[in-house]
């Protein structure tokens, strides 16, 4: 530090004194600084006040800005991301291998569900979907149908990354509506990836979440030009079931959100509510 004279006749200017005080508070002042600082503070009440205020701020920042954080949860997510990357490197070109993550029984059931959907389509969907049962509403039937087809056929995800940011950015560039910036996986789940799909006469964004062998998808679409009854897509979540899958729907900010999952209905509802809070 350069010691120079200043306007109050000490050997250190106020600027230099404050620079040295800042280092002193971090225990980083040079040995020579201490005496010079002390002499400066003795004759400069302004720097003394400054020092008191800085010390108080230093203490408050240290004491109050330590946000509680669960390091285990953080580490689990990191560990899962590393495993996912190692997995994808071992099996290049395969986005999600459902045969590995799903029990054989579920896969068989899903295959059956595809047959059911195919039969429904053969028998003119519009007539069948006009029925009163909620599970037959096109929003429910088509999202569940897509989910089942995706799983059974093993369609690859368009984007797969351990980073939520990368996934969000990639998907947001490919739709003409504004994706919410949240979409944070509820505890225990991780966002695996996403894809762009087209049905209900529009482009939709599909997010895939996983927790062990449990999978949950979130479809996000614009409600423009879509007839959405309040009992299906209101502001509060509504829970349905179709072809053995839980289906949770809500509407917010001109967008419709649909969860399809093999989680039991109550759990799917909790999943949706937690996710909704982050959007």
């Amino acid at each position: 530090m350069t010691i120079k004279s200043n306007n109050i006749g000490t050997e250190m200017s106020c600027d230099d004194a404050r620079d040295a005080l800042s280092a002193m508070m971090d225990g980083e002042a040079y040995d020579a600084d201490f005496n010079v600082i002390q002499r400066h503070l003795d004759v400069c009440p302004e720097c003394k006040d400054h020092f008191d205020a800085q010390s108080a701020l230093h203490v408050r920042l240290r004491e109050e800005c330590i946000e509680p954080q669960d390091p285990d949860l953080l580490w689990n997510n990191i560990s899962a991301a590393i495993s996912a990357e190692e997995d994808s490197q071992r099996r290049p070109g395969r986005a999600v291998d459902w045969r590995r993550v799903l029990p054989a029984r579920t896969a068989t059931f899903a295959a059956g569900a595809v047959v059911v959907v195919a039969v429904l389509i053969l028998f003119n969907g519009s007539t069948i979907f006009s029925g009163k049962r909620m599970g037959d509403h096109p929003i429910i039937a088509e999202t569940v149908g897509d989910f089942v087809t995706f799983r059974v056929r093993g369609y690859p995800l368009d984007i797969k990354s351990p980073s939520r940011l990368v996934i969000m950015r990639w998907l947001a560039e490919r739709v003409d509506f504004r994706l919410p910036s949240g979409v944070v996986p509820p505890a225990g789940f991780r966002l695996v990836g996403g894809r762009i799909c087209s049905f209900l006469n529009r482009r939709l964004v599909f997010f895939l979440f996983k927790r062990g062998k449990t999978a949950a998808s979130l479809y996000v679409m614009s409600v423009a030009g879509l007839a959405v009854p309040d009992d299906i897509g209101g502001r509060a979540v509504s829970v349905h079931s179709s072809k053995g899958f839980s289906n949770v729907i809500w509407r917010s900010g001109g967008l419709l959100y649909v969860i399809v999952s093999n989680l039991p209905e109550a759990e799917a509802e909790r999943f949706a509510k937690t996710l909704k809070q982050t959007i």
């Binding site: 306007n7 109050i8 200017s13 106020c14 600027d15 404050r18 620079d19 800042s22 280092a23 971090d26 302004e46 006040d49 400054h50 008191d52 205020a53 800085q54 108080a56 701020l57 230093h58 408050r60 920042l61």
Partner: peptide, 28 residues
């Protein structure tokens, strides 16, 4: 760090006021 501290003190002076707040200061 010194620069950062000075700016933080300025922004947070309503939480941690100093006796010279509002007065003309010599420097820095």
């Amino acid at each position: 760090l010194n620069r950062g501290r000075l700016l933080l003190q300025k922004e947070l002076r309503h939480h941690v006021p100093s006796k010279t707040d509002g007065k003309e200061s010599k420097s820095g």
